[in-house]
Amino acid sequence: MIDIGLLLFLLVVAIAIVKVRDLFAAAMLFAIYSLLSAALFAVLDAGDVALTEAAVGAGFSTILVLAVLALARRYEHPTGGHNLLALFVVGVTGAALIYATLDLPEFGAADNPAQIHVGPHYIEQSYPDMGVPNMVAAVLASYRSIDTMGEVFVIFAAALGVYALLSVKPRRRQFVLPRRPRSGKARDEDDES
């Protein structure tokens, strides 16, 4: 099946992203990862999600990372050996997740709880209710409209946050530890936000 291959491919790319020290390469790999997961979403019948993931993950996020890399070092510092604490935390979390999957409903079965409660209502009622064939749009904009409104405000908040952070003019002296200002003028300018 196609998704076995896709999943394995995703796995490989993910490991490569963690391993590779060149952040530029990592960004490119990340774009690939996004495209792959978009493909997976498409396979899983989630067309809207696939479209969005491709646009956001492979497009917008990558551009932003590249913009940051234009300002910062391209190569990551090597980290000494494995972080045992992190491995432990990850191991415990992963074990908990695997423990949970032992009882999860069969993948793709039509009689899963998710498929027999609430879900069918959307499938059956969205056209009679609002005459919209795209159920995703119907649920998104009407049944769960307030969620989407929240989403709009989240992205608006991000814009405001970025605006607040990056509309402050950069200053040279911020590079150095501000122990001894070089001149009175520089000191005045150093003050920010």
Partner: peptide
Amino acid sequence: NPLPHVLIL
């Protein structure tokens, strides 16, 4: 099921 799609969007 369209619901997860909406959530993930």
